[in-house]
């Protein structure tokens, strides 16, 4: 259908122009077709370098503000915090606390992941499992893990049992939700290709669905890790850990009571450092060697 604008004018006709052919230039004349990047270009293209730059910037802002406000009780300087961090690490106190926290964290994390694996496996193989997972996640995912702490204390007493319970709760639901949506997102073609190989049951899930859903599973692992870490510190702030050896949350709480504010900051900084390390070393290397290498994630 021609436009109404042109209906009462001349119909649109392309003009006829002369033809031509050309000899294309030699590549050498044009200059560099491809050249190595300059050091500066390479530096700005490096994610790690850019991140470190941001960290340095934030550190400088902290130091500047603390020096300007000159109130070590409320806001110690970065240098003072780092010094305290160093001494508490060297005398082994903070390191000991970190290890205690990490040990409990890893147990809860592992149990949570295992439970999520069982639930999602059930969900992809049976309709009942699918309904069960959807119902359970929509019920429990919005429930903050820390809100279960009073109940956990009642059931498991003051100690690692309660902490593990809330940790499992913190990890299980986001992990299951992400893994399941990853499985659901695997394309029909890939599923059919897997079945075409004659793969069935667990082998089909492990060899086709799990690698195909790995980007979502990794996201689940990351979110689960963050939730677990948060929950643990919060729970320790409330009651520490049984048998005297408290975790890093308890370290923060203790020092606040004794008005050792640089130590409080050192403890917080330690939490941040561990978080950064796990994210940028552990998860990042897993991503680089899997989903990025495979072109499943940019």
């Amino acid at each position: 259908m021609t436009g109404s604008v042109q209906s009462h004018q001349q119909p649109l006709v392309p003009s006829i122009r002369p033809e031509f052919e050309r000899d294309v230039l030699d590549a050498g004349v044009i200059g560099d077709i491809s050249r190595p990047l300059s050091p500066w270009e390479r530096l700005t293209g490096n994610t790690l370098a850019r991140r470190i730059f941001i960290l340095v910037l934030l550190g400088a802002a902290w130091q500047a503000y603390a020096v300007w406000s000159d109130n070590p009780l409320m806001f110690p300087t970065l240098s003072e915090t780092l010094a305290t961090l160093w001494t508490s690490l060297v005398d082994g106190q903070l390191l000991q606390r970190c290890l205690t926290s990490l040990r409990i964290l890893l147990v809860g994390y592992a149990v949570g992941i295992a439970a999520a694996a069982v639930l999602t496996m059930l969900a992809v193989t049976t309709r009942f499992g699918n309904d069960l997972l959807s119902t359970l996640t929509s019920m429990f995912n919005p429930l903050p893990a820390i809100a279960l702490l009073p109940l956990a204390l009642l059931w498991f007493g003051l100690g690692e049992g309660s902490l593990t319970f809330v940790l499992v709760h913190a990890v299980l639901w986001p992990m299951a939700l992400n893994t399941h949506s990853g499985f659901m997102g695997v394309s029909d073609t890939l599923r059919m290709a897997g079945q075409n190989y004659g793969l069935k049951g667990l082998r089909y899930v492990m060899l086709i669905l799990v690698p195909a859903a790995l980007p979502s599973i990794l996201t689940g692992l990351k979110i689960g890790w963050a939730f677990a870490w948060r929950t643990l510190i919060a729970a320790e702030l409330v009651f520490g850990v049984s048998s005297g050896a408290g975790g890093i949350g308890w370290f923060i709480y203790e020092n606040r009571n004794q008005l050792e504010i640089p130590s409080v900051f050192a403890g917080l900084l330690m939490v941040i450092i561990i978080g950064l390390l796990v994210e940028s070393v552990v998860f990042r290397s897993i991503e680089i060697y899997t989903v990025r290498k495979w072109g499943m994630q940019r």
């Binding site: 073609t189 890939l190 059919m192 290709a193 190989y197 790995l214 899997t290």
Partner: peptide, 16 residues
Amino acid sequence: PDRMVVFQEFDQLLPW
């Protein structure tokens, strides 16, 4: 696998 399929879609290969 006695009836191998070549699909139209390009994502039939295992990306990993």
